[in-house]
Write a protein that binds this DNA or RNA. Structure first.
Length: 414
RNA sequence: GUGGCUGUAGCUCAGCUGGUUAGAGCACCGGAUUGUGGAUCCGGGGGUCGUGGGUUCAAGUCCCAUCAGCCACCCCA
């Protein structure tokens, strides 16, 4: 039994759930397309250094969540824990800088070695967009608007809140970090052990700590916005102005931080209360430093990623499957004619299920069970007349129709 | 990675302080109905009680371990 279970934190996506995923992906892709995004895909695994260099040596993802292994050729490989690094790598190795700015949409599985919970899996799926090569705040606004639009289209927007913050540019962040560390040093005794470690590696993260002692210390900490230089303030102001103009509500959350240096300016998250502890549904921001850090020529970028499972959960019951037409042969002589009829209807665009086995009653039962919209009954009587009986399984009414015009008769069931 | 809760049929669950062949509803299969489904009635199949060990005359029930899920922390999508 246990070795027949899917590995921890993974699960099979059966047709019902798959339709839920499909709805999220298809909706997102269609909306993103209106904003100029084209779908692409990067490999599911990359050389480990792509993520290590990109996510930093201190991030949780790199230190404890990567699925890494050495392949038979001795290469260090990692299953992608997120896709921005892969897209950035692709941007460079495929020479996309020639076409910059590029707008890319993706959907696919990601892998993180975490302790599973509802809405948190080891293999999960994300959709995301990346706008690479566009520097201004307008791009940030539009990226957020694309996300908001997708949440609208999925009908879940009213259950989410947009949290917004700015990380400023590098200069502002360096200035603030220095002041912050200086302040925290004076109260280091009150910090949690974890935060003491973060003090050297990742001090901004302390602002987001949920430890009570940390929070008391953080409450009196210098305020980041006081250290934003003029350019950073102007950038953030424009982002807010744009969101206001588009009627996209947001809540400024000064504790919304990103630990990594290549992030700058806009950071945002659409969160929800409806999913328990896993509240983040769509998260993103600006990563102007990323491509430079990976060895490319400095190129700005903005984007977000969203969890398909989480969005699908918010959406509720998946749409029902398309209802088929059941072709029901009666008697041996009808078998082959029913087969060719089925094939013809499929060529004409219908979803067709041909019942086999059992008597007519059994086949009708089956037709009912698979939620067929109609049954096309083909027996010797009909064959002799070159027709078929079409029974509407909703109303129970039926009529005979010539085979030649059957597809037209069935048109409303397509 | 830490702490807590849970694990009985495909699904939802019952099974009292350990005590005969482990039950129900739904679902599934067959029949009533060999050219007509949904309703009803009758019948049937299906469980190594998550797994492994231990205690006991006796374990679904108690103990330990392990696996998985869930909840919180952590982190995030």
């Amino acid at each position: 039994m246990s070795d027949l279970q899917p590995a921890r934190g993974t699960h099979d996506i059966l047709p019902d759930e798959m339709r839920g995923h499909r709805r999220v992906i298809d909706t997102a892709r269609a909306v993103a397309e209106r904003y100029g995004y084209d779908e692409m895909a990067t490999p599911i695994f990359e050389f480990s250094r792509v993520f290590k260099r990109t996510l930093g040596d201190t991030s949780d993802i790199v230190t404890k969540e990567m699925y890494s292994f050495t392949d038979k050729g001795g290469d260090e490989i990692t299953l992608r824990p997120e896709n921005t690094a892969g897209v950035a790598r692709c941007f460079m190795s495929e020479g996309l800088a020639q076409n910059a700015p590029v707008r890319l949409f993706y959907a696919g599985p990601m892998f993180r070695y975490e302790r599973p919970q509802k809405g948190r899996l080891r293999q999960f799926h994300q959709i995301g967009i990346e706008n690479i090569g566009t520097p201004g705040a307008l791009a940030d606004i539009e990226v957020i608007a694309t996300g908001a639009h997708i949440l609208d289209a999925l009908g879940v927007r009213d259950r989410t809140v947009l949290e917004l913050n700015t990380l400023g540019d590098g200069e502002s962040r360096d200035a603030y970090r220095a002041v912050l560390v200086e302040y925290l040093q004076t109260r280091i005794g009150e910090l949690s052990g974890e935060s003491r470690e973060r003090l050297t590696r990742n001090p901004l993260r302390i602002l987001d700590s949920k430890d009570e002692g940390d929070r008391r210390v953080v409450a009196d900490a210098p305020i980041f916005s006081d250290y934003l230089n003029e350019a950073s303030q102007a950038f953030f102001a424009e982002v807010r102005e744009g969101l206001d103009a588009l009627g996209i509500a947001y809540a400024i959350n000064p504790r919304l931080v990103r630990g990594l240096d290549y992030y700058s300016h806009t950071a945002f998250e659409f969160t929800t209360e409806a999913l328990g502890a896993q509240g983040a549904v769509m998260a993103g921001g600006r990563y102007d430093g990323l491509i430079g850090m990976m060895g490319g020529s400095p190129t700005p970028g903005v984007g977000w990623a969203a969890g398909i499972e989480r969005l699908a959960m918010l959406c509720g019951d998946p749409p029902p499957a398309r209802r088929p037409i059941a072709v029901v042969p009666v008697g041996d002589a009808a078998r082959i004619p029913a087969l060719t009829l089925s094939e013809g209807l499929r060529r004409a665009g219908f979803r067709v299920d041909m019942a086999a086995g059992g008597n007519l009653a059994k086949r009708m039962k089956r037709a009912n069970k698979i939620a067929a919209v109609a049954a096309v009954i083909l027996g010797e009587d009909e064959l002799a007349r070159g027709s078929a009986t079409v029974r509407d399984l909703q109303s129970g009414t039926q009529e005979e129709a010539p085979l030649a015009s059957l597809a037209d008769r069935l048109a409303r069931y397509r």
